[in-house]
Nucleic acid binder design. Structure first.
Lengths: 338, 338
DNA sequence: CTGAAAGCGCTTACAG
DNA sequence: CTGAAAGCGCTTACAG
């Protein structure tokens, strides 16, 4: 097919040297192999002249390395993920690594396929925002000595690096901010997902209730069918819990969807109901009134993820001791919770 | 290194067959090669049992195909790009192709590096949202017989497939909508970029002025320094052009940034100034008042891009006749322009 | 200082 | 119906 590309062989032939010599020079091992500076220079000049670039497929086949990292997110269309993806891409790029993203859309099946495709493609490391049911596959990756960092949520049964935030505390503080403001009936709108970050956020809410003795009002929208169910479920939740004077949303899409519904119902924020959302973004900032939100330290997370992965990659093997890091989040207070 | 993976050789040895036979069966050529059904079944069963998956690197090395498409966007953090990326990913996935994204952030240098890295990685096709200065590189890709689709903007000097929208007409209609509403001093806020889509949008604005005899008010924010310059430039533009009663924004980030500034200046929309934005998104929809916006047909664009690329890939060579498709956009009218 | 040769895991003419 | 063998473009012991 496209066999017009120049190869090491072509170079060695043209210059009357061996493939070995060319390869060493190309890989910066000229000095180490004590190749004369003249030869090295000549080769480099020629390489530049003819515009040779190595075939990474061939290189990967023999070295087992591709300088590529697979990044599995829930949905690249979600600003939280596209922002962190953007940051991770940049960090990785600066270290000579490329990122391949893909979205699971929360589906275990798709996630499994993606992991397998990344493995087949020979990625060096994995950054995974796991769906449910991924435990076995990830355990196996670890057994095969592959570098993995879990992100946003983890799998309790799997020993692996994890970088995220302290969700329990973040939600506790968000709710406490509402209670401190005199709210008496604080509701929590979340999903029925069993993902760790969701469990922790709910736990933060419950801790506040326990401490303050306030009553619980929880709406769990079915994770698999949020688009369809949010509106009817949220509307009847509001109707059936008329005492609610504040709501904490466990995700940004729940918040944004509900804010639109509240607007249509002419519920005044914060006069009738105060609101706090999870994951800050432009919509929440520009909403009228501005929406108080828990902000995750994206830049720091991106850095920790990449550093950890590159370290493992450099060590060349999976470390026994895994990192489980929960960064503090920050509550950005805006008019919606005053 | 990680040489624990099973290979075709292992299978052929275990089953007492040749690599050839295994390879044919694995590639669905069993019937074509008239391999007995029993043998084929036995091989498939064994493959499944031991969990063999082919090494795509090796396969790619010999076939020259990787079933991967490189997608170069301006910024994956921009909702316009993350949305279309999401759609393209899905379409490609359904056809057995994987997408590798990366962002140029508008930098020619980064774009060149990305194209080269994609080439080195052996992607089968390229979807490129080009920056300036990419003409030579893309011409060369075409000469090397690689499949390319340009998207969002094109390069006038390069013959290549292009899928986008009719920007001139879209902006013309957006402005006409304002003029029809009785606006007398319609401003255009754009960048100084020479990218085709920006030129066309400006041209649409100018056509309306010409038709109606209205006066021109154009602000061009420096593309390379929008973050720093938007606020001061926009504020003095408003101050120096007090007659303005409507503004068309040429991009979503210009619109969103300016809306925030207008809010801080207590400019009432649409009472004092009507507003139309380009590229719809959640922020514009939920802004108070809702912002009228030009919506691009993302789904249709994604489909056209992938279909075109796959067709070229199937034909196995670059078609002489290139497609240059400009889809119609749709104006979504909201309160900001009433 | 440099080269000949094996091998990474596949595919595919060619031969029977 | 099936196999032996060459080759894709690299890297890397090994030898001198």
């Amino acid at each position: 097919m496209k066999r017009n590309r120049i190869s090491i062989k072509d170079i060695s032939k043209a210059l009357g040297l061996s493939n070995t010599t060319i390869s060493f020079i190309l890989n910066g091992k000229a000095e180490e192999m004590r190749i004369s500076a003249q030869v090295a220079e000549k080769v480099l000049a020629y390489v530049k002249e003819v515009g040779y670039t190595p075939n990474y497929l061939a290189r990967g086949l023999v070295t087992g390395k591709t300088n590529t990292i697979g990044f599995i997110v829930e949905s690249i269309g979600n600003p939280f993920f596209s922002q962190i993806a953007s940051l991770i891409e940049e960090q990785a790029y600066n270290s000579g690594y490329k990122i391949i993203y893909s979205s699971t859309n929360g589906k275990q099946e798709k996630a499994l396929e993606l992991i397998r495709m990344f493995r087949d493609r020979g990625v060096d490391g994995y950054i995974i925002c796991p769906t449910d049911g991924l435990a076995e596959e990830i355990k196996q990756l670890r057994e095969e000595n592959r570098s993995i960092v879990l992100f946003d949520r983890y799998l309790p049964s799997v020993v692996a690096h994890y970088i995220g935030i302290d969700n329990e505390r973040a939600m506790y503080e968000a709710c406490k901010h509402l209670a401190d403001g005199g709210k008496k009936n604080i509701a929590m709108v979340t999903t029925d997902s069993e993902q760790t970050q969701m469990i922790s956020r709910l736990a933060g809410y419950q801790r506040l209730l326990k401490e303050t003795g306030l009553q619980s009002h929880v709406l769990q929208v079915p994770y698999d069918d949020i688009k369809q169910r949010l509106q009817p479920d949220f509307e009847s939740f509001i109707k059936n819990n008329p005492t609610i004077d504040a709501i904490c949303f466990a995700t940004n899409y729940l918040a944004i969807g509900s804010l639109e519904i509240m607007r249509n119902l002419h519920i005044s924020i914060p006069d009738q109901i105060s609101v706090v959302a999870f994951d800050d973004n432009e919509v929440l900032r520009l909403f009228q009134p501005g929406i108080t939100a828990v902000e995750q330290p994206l830049e720091e997370m991106a850095k920790l993820i990449i550093d950890r992965l590159l370290l493992d990659l450099k060590l060349g093997k999976v470390t026994e001791k895994t990192v489980h890091k929960e960064l503090p989040a920050r509550l950005i207070i805006r008019a919606s919770s005053l």
